[in-house]
Amino acid sequence: MKQNVFAFLAGVVFALGLGVSGMSQPSKVRGFLDFFGDWDITLLFVLGPAVCIYLLGTRIAAWVSPERFRVSSDPERMGVRFFSGCILFGIGWGMVGLCPGPSIVILGQGSFPTVLFFLFVLLGIYGADRVLAGLSGEK
């Protein structure tokens, strides 16, 4: 129960963050990606502090209380699969300017295109999961 309350509150604040930051305004995201043209660097001010806070916070927690908080990682194997996934994701991100988190947040406007976009994100996730499970011989 406590987990669910924490997760719910985290979801609320995370979505507000995606709204306030400008990550849910497709033109802003595409402006950030337009560094061959009219480059808008604003979103660097989102990523920079976010990564720093996470980095410092997790390291401090691990230093203060090593028995409770351990810094661990589970990196992806950087092979063909990984690189093609990154490229496909980037192309989709640049085409419209929305990544998965903001595709949820922008649902708030309640328009047909945002619902369509979100449903196709889900379809992409579901389809890729099925294919990956098939490739690794599960199920």
Binding site: I91, P113, G124
Partner: peptide
Amino acid sequence: AISEPLSADLWVLGLAALLVGGGARIA
């Protein structure tokens, strides 16, 4: 923060969404 309309053609929206969702899982 969220009111910008998605003005791209529907097939562009659908394709981009598939790439973003599927690509993220593959990556």
